[in-house]
Nucleic acid binder design. Structure first.
Length: 896
DNA sequence: TCATTCACG
DNA sequence: ACGTACGTGAATGAG
């Protein structure tokens, strides 16, 4: 029977793997200092390309590392000379590559005096002779000379993630020659990477033309005299010897004496123990996770049936019962989890829930009438049992929907994992648990993803999954808390993030009332304007096209109309606002396009978008504030995003008229921190000049302008000077660069540079701090806020200038943005407590980074203003006073 | 699913 | 020389 033989060119593929992931070189390092980028890519290759092939035999051939040179070196002294030596970061990965090959069930082979090509060439002919099917995988086109009807070459593309399949037909179609002719093609062109010449001035095009005419090298030289005189003819004659030498160098040996045969290279498939061992050594968290969950093997349907058994480290999950509740209710600590069918827990179906601990065991159920049971209510609502959960905010809302309150939460694994390390946090229990070495089937495996989402038919599968979640959460607490403690983040968790999650849950559940009729009316008016703009644009363009398509718009503006190209994107011409504004004076159509864009955005995102998420039951939008997403500690808001409702233009700002209080006679009240980020900066740097400006409550941008332009203290500042100074202040907060400032202000880079230099002279402590924080980031690999919120910067020591510079700017910006986030979070908790303590009816509705929005009875307005302002400006004791401004009115429009 | 654009702080 | 301002989310077109 015909067998499938897989022969892999180890050197060329490892080399490609290394350079494919070269940008990642600096971040892929084990704690022991071993670079792993090539290993990661090579492992992906073995998993995604080799594993599914399921060959009968498999071998990875390597170039001889030491010993005698190959015959090619004897033939031509400069063979492979001048080739860059493999970098040390690559070489150190070699031994592990071989270990990896073995763990994946393949064999390694190398032999003194041979290159990998020759080993593959020889074995391919042996396999062919035995009537087997041979597949060669390589990154080197040379090997395609081996192709026959029984020998296929898969040439790696895009690093090692894809392959192109070379068959005799493919080569004929692509190059118009046979596989054997590839050798003579090489003879004519030579090979720059192996450093041997062919015929002068003959490249791929010429070589193919010659081969089509003369078929091979011998025949070509037999007829070379008949060629009409030309430079090429001269070159062919002069370089004849070189061409024949190149032919020999390019020819892969197919009859080498090897010390192994086909019987020695049987493929056994991946070996779990070996892989686990290797992955642990290399700190391959993801690969381990995949392995433990058995998806690696499931991919090829190998041991799918066994996977359930092997999952194994979990206790049995029991169906919940009343007698179980009697035992559970006596426990001090229990893990608790409700499983939903979708991300948006305000509306998602609740599928099942689980509860338990290691002593009493784990219980699951799909029967939500259990929540009428007093014992279960006592557990989740009371203060006796401390709960361990994954996402307290979500569970608060879910219980709220069931008519219950969430009682005492001790451990929220999601929050803790986020505080410990924001990088790569995907908010998914299975992956976060994997970081702590606990492996759990992912939701995707149990339910499928996207449109394929289905709840398992068998109840037991579902109950087991939710039960295992509870057990995982329960078991993570000690390790997670001790890590928190080590980071000095217990206060941040216990006194800020965890209480905040309850405040946010209440805000989300409360919702923001929307005046749908008003929004619909605005929508109609916009539609009319959009339609007429559209017609005008078509008329001016002389044709109809999709104005929303940047591609079509680019073609019109830059090709048909011939306007100058200001900026390009990866995929074509940029048509962004700043570009169109520069073009506006040249073509009147551009103004219309800008107006169209603005209206189209408002209509689709804010009118239609908002209307589509209003809950018809209460005419409210219920956003979700993502508390564990941003890298800086800010919140974000989704479904809908209430943190980017228009403000800067009047047309957009009108949208805010549709955000109204939920009761008649109530008002919307907004309070915002003035210049909080600059105040934070002044406070943590202790800069006297800046401190003075804030203590005296000066206009900070005007004050900055006086410093930067060297003006006396009470000098008047013109609007342009103030605008420039404001941009400089922004730049400082973002981690300034002259390039960025010059682009923002549309001024020469030199000028921007001199602004920055003057700024740093005038505010010396800020300059000093910027240096210190970068230094610390380089040393520690992370930076911190005033409340010890941490941001890791994996790129801070990158070799690439851009990558590293980005990390350095982040190092300067994150403590500022993050500390401001700390402050408003603390204020939110305190405001919420104050409202409750005073028995006020007011509701906090939205947080927009430096601003809080409330609704309250008109009669409560004065008290609310007083309370909120006081709590906000005294939330945290800083060296610089915090300033709060507030507004109120019948809608959100007036409250800012 | 990715890239672009634009809304906010 | 290098070529980016910091942090987000939603809609759209195009592959």
């Amino acid at each position: 029977m015909s067998k499938k033989i897989l022969l892999i060119d180890g050197n060329s593929l490892a080399f490609r793997a290394f350079y494919a992931m070269y940008q990642q070189l600096d971040r892929m390092v084990t704690p022991e200092g071993l670079h792993t980028n090539a290993l990661v890519a090579f492992n992906n290759f073995l998993e995604s390309i080799v594993l599914p092939m399921q060959p009968d035999m498999g071998l990875v051939a390597w170039d001889a590392q030491s010993g005698r040179e190959t015959f090619r070196g004897d033939l031509y002294a400069d063979y492979k000379a001048g080739r860059d030596k493999a970098p040390a970061e690559f070489k150190e990965q070699f031994p592990y590559l071989r270990e990896m090959v073995e763990a994946h069930g393949l064999h390694n082979y190398e032999q003194v005096g041979l290159e990998a090509d020759d080993i593959i060439g020889t074995l391919s002919r042996i396999g062919q002779a035995a009537g087997d099917q041979v597949i060669i995988i390589t990154g080197d086109q040379d090997l395609t000379q081996l192709v026959t009807d029984d020998v296929t070459v898969k040439l790696a593309k895009k690093g090692v993630s894809q392959v192109e399949v070379y068959t005799p037909d493919f080569i004929m179609n692509e190059f118009g020659i046979t596989p054997e002719q590839i050798i003579d093609k090489k003879a004519l062109t030579g090979d720059t990477s192996d450093n041997y010449p062919g015929v002068t001035k003959v490249g791929e095009k010429t070589a193919l033309k010659l081969l089509k005419q003369y078929h091979d090298l011998d025949n070509l030289y037999a007829h070379v005299d008949e060629m009409k005189p030309s430079k090429m003819k001269e070159n062919l004659i002069n370089d004849k010897e070189q061409a024949y030498r190149a032919q020999k160098l390019a020819t892969i040996i197919t009859d080498a004496k090897l010390s192994i045969g086909l019987k020695d290279i049987t493929y056994n498939g991946p070996e779990e123990k070996g892989l686990v061992n290797l992955f642990e050594k290399l700190h391959f968290k993801q690969a381990l996770n995949k392995l433990r969950a058995h998806t690696l093997f499931d991919d090829v349907g190998q041991i799918a049936e066994e996977s359930e058994k092997k999952q194994g480290d979990f206790q049995t999950v029991h169906p919940l019962s009343k007698s179980a509740l009697e035992r559970l209710v006596k426990e001090d600590y229990l893990a608790f989890h409700i499983e939903t069918s979708g991300e948006n827990y305000h509306q998602a179906d609740m599928l099942a829930f689980s509860i338990g601990n290691d002593e009493v065991g784990y219980y699951g159920s799909r029967d939500f009438t259990f929540f009428d049971n007093d014992l279960l209510r006592q557990i989740v609502e009371g203060s006796q049992t401390k709960l361990r959960v994954f996402n307290a905010k979500e569970h608060w809302v879910l219980l709220h929907r069931l008519g219950l309150t969430l009682g005492a939460v001790d451990f929220d694994f999601l929050l803790v994992a986020y505080l410990l390390d924001t990088v790569g946090n995907d908010n998914v229990l299975s992956t976060l648990a994997g970081r702590f070495g606990r492996y759990l089937a992912s939701d995707e495996e149990v339910y499928g993803k996207g449109a394929k989402f289905t709840v398992p038919e068998e109840e037991k599968v579902l109950i087991d999954h939710v039960g295992h979640k509870a057990e995982t959460i329960f078991g993570l607490r000690d390790q997670a808390f001790s890590d928190l403690d080590e980071h000095e983040q217990s206060h941040l968790y216990r006194d800020i993030e965890l209480p905040l999650s309850f405040v946010l849950a209440k805000m989300e559940a409360q919702g923001f009332k929307v005046n749908e009729a008003r929004l619909e009316k605005m929508g109609q008016e916009m539609d009319e304007q959009i339609a007429s703009l559209k017609q005008e644009i078509y008329q001016m363009a002389g044709e109809e096209f999709n104005i929303n398509s940047t591609k079509q718009l680019g073609t019109l503006l830059f090709e048909k109309m011939g306007l100058p190209v200001i900026k390009k994107t990866k995929t074509g011409y940029s048509t962004a606002v700043e570009v169109l504004e520069k073009l506006a004076p040249e073509a009147p159509i551009v103004e219309h396009i800008l107006a169209y864009r603005q209206l189209a955005k408002l209509k689709s995102t804010y009118v239609d978008g908002l209307l589509s998420v209003v809950n018809p039951a209460d005419q409210k939008v219920h956003t979700r504030f993502l508390q564990t997403l941003t890298q800086t500690g800010r919140l974000s808001s989704v479904d809908p995003n209430l943190q980017n409702i228009p403000m800067r233009t009047e047309a957009g700002r009108k949208i805010r008229h549709a955000f109204v209080p939920s009761h008649d006679g109530w008002q919307i009240f907004g309070a915002d921190y003035s210049q909080i980020e600059l105040r934070v900066l002044a406070s943590i740097t202790g800069d006297p000049a800046m401190e003075h400006a804030f203590v005296e409550d000066e206009d900070i941008h005007a004050e900055t302008a006086r410093k930067v332009f060297g003006l006396p203290e009470d000098a008047p500042i013109d609007p342009d000077q103030r605008r420039t100074a404001k941009a400089v202040n922004f730049g400082i907060v973002y981690g300034i660069s002259d390039y960025g400032l010059s682009k923002n202000l549309n001024i020469p880079r030199k000028e921007a540079k001199s602004f920055i230099e003057t700024y740093f002279r005038e505010f010396p402590r800020i300059h000093q701090w910027m240096g210190q924080i970068k230094e610390r980031a380089h040393k520690d690999g992370f930076v911190e806020t005033i409340e010890h919120r941490r941001r890791y910067l994996p790129d801070i020591n990158a070799k690439n200038f851009n990558t590293r510079s980005f990390a350095e700017r982040t190092a300067m910006n994150s403590p500022i943005q993050g500390s401001a986030a700390d402050i408003i979070k603390i204020a939110m908790i305190k405001v919420s407590q104050a409202i409750e303590a005073k028995g006020m009816a007011a509701n906090m509705l939205v947080q927009v980074h430096d601003e809080l929005v409330f609704e309250c009875p008109e009669s409560e307005l004065d008290e609310l203003r007083d309370t909120v302002t006081k709590v906000m400006d005294s939330a945290v004791k800083l060296a610089i006073p915090l300033k709060v401004e507030s507004h109120s009115g019948p809608t959100w429009y007036e409250a800012k």
